[in-house]
């Protein structure tokens, strides 16, 4: 079983559309994991039907027991996040501000403060229209993606792939360079970068590559909208060669991505698009690379 993680430093490069395309091409041989929890859009293309769902808890927030509180104000005094308010006459915690550090609980003289695990959203297992299973999550407003949530999504995907004897796990990775993306990469066999030849695209690719390099995971790159700026495309190709990143393919700037998306489809469902053949070839190449 091989785990492929698709990431891109910045948004809007086509990462999710490509991940969903690979999911379509892999069909029954793969389990899909959507770890881009903040902008989880893959379900719009893969139309998953939920088989199973459960609440997800992550992080803690302080809760003050009003029956025990003696209104001494110590908690408010030490809180560095302005999370405790007494304008109503009661000391109350604002969940949006509370960082969950627990300091207030340690200074409360009467033990009125408890740290309560936060229900931050739901984790789902679904069946997609490509006849593969997909693990995904939905976060509540203001809740942060975390290494823990990503690990949970990947764990469920792996368990499902192992149980059903699947060959691949295809992961839509988290954005940025923080803990969630570290957790997305952890345990991966291969990383696919999706980038675009823009000043911000190359800038963010270099940032996220630093992380992948640290984990020593082999990687490849798809340059999307490659003809938009030939010069930056060449710069990216040079960066790939210098760092032993396999240059998987270049895709042209093409609005058929969006046309397909508007129909709720992945681009590979449009058999007339020239891009479809390129992505199919890319998936074949990936499979060969993973055999090695």
């Amino acid at each position: 079983m091989k785990e492929i993680v698709i990431i891109s430093g910045k948004g809007g490069t086509g990462k999710t559309s490509l991940t969903a395309s690979f999911a379509m091409l892999a069909g029954q041989t793969a389990v899909i994991a959507d770890c881009d929890v903040d902008a989880a859009d893959m379900h719009l293309l893969l139309k998953p039907e939920r088989i199973f769902e459960e609440d997800f808890y992550s992080g803690v927030a302080a809760v003050i027991d009003q029956d025990k509180c003696i209104q001494c104000g110590k908690c408010q005094e030490i809180c560095r996040f302005n999370a405790i308010d007494n304008s109503t006459g009661q000391y109350l915690v604002s969940n949006l501000n509370c960082e969950g550090c627990g300091y207030c609980g340690h200074v409360c003289p009467v033990g009125a403060i408890e740290m309560i695990e936060q229900n931050v959203g739901k984790c789902y297992i679904s069946k997609t229209k490509a006849d593969n299973k997909m693990v995904h999550a939905g976060l509540k407003i203001g809740a942060d993606n975390s290494g823990k949530l990503v690990a949970k999504v990947k764990h469920e995907a792996k368990a499902s792939a192992e149980k059903d004897g699947k060959e691949y796990i295809i992961v839509d990775g988290s954005p940025g360079i923080g803990c969630p993306v570290v957790s997305s990469l952890s345990g991966a066999d291969f990383v696919v970068f999706v980038t675009e030849p823009t000043v911000s695209g190359i800038h963010d690719l270099e940032r996220v590559y630093q992380l992948v390099k640290k984990f020593q995971i082999p990687s490849g790159c798809i340059i999307n909208k490659a003809d938009l700026n030939e010069k930056v495309s060449k710069d990216i190709e040079k960066f790939l060669a210098d760092n032993e990143i396999i240059h998987l393919t270049n895709l042209p700037y093409d609005e058929s991505f969006t046309t397909a998306m508007t129909k709720g489809q992945t681009i590979v469902e449009d058999k007339t698009s020239p891009i479809t053949a390129s992505i199919e070839q890319c998936w074949q190449d990936l499979k060969i690379i993973l055999e090695k």
């Binding site: 948004g11 903040d38 976060l139 203001g142 809740a143 942060d144």
Partner: peptide, 8 residues
């Protein structure tokens, strides 16, 4: 971008 703490 997004809906988490930095945006807030």
């Amino acid at each position: 971008p997004g809906t988490s703490c930095p945006v807030i």
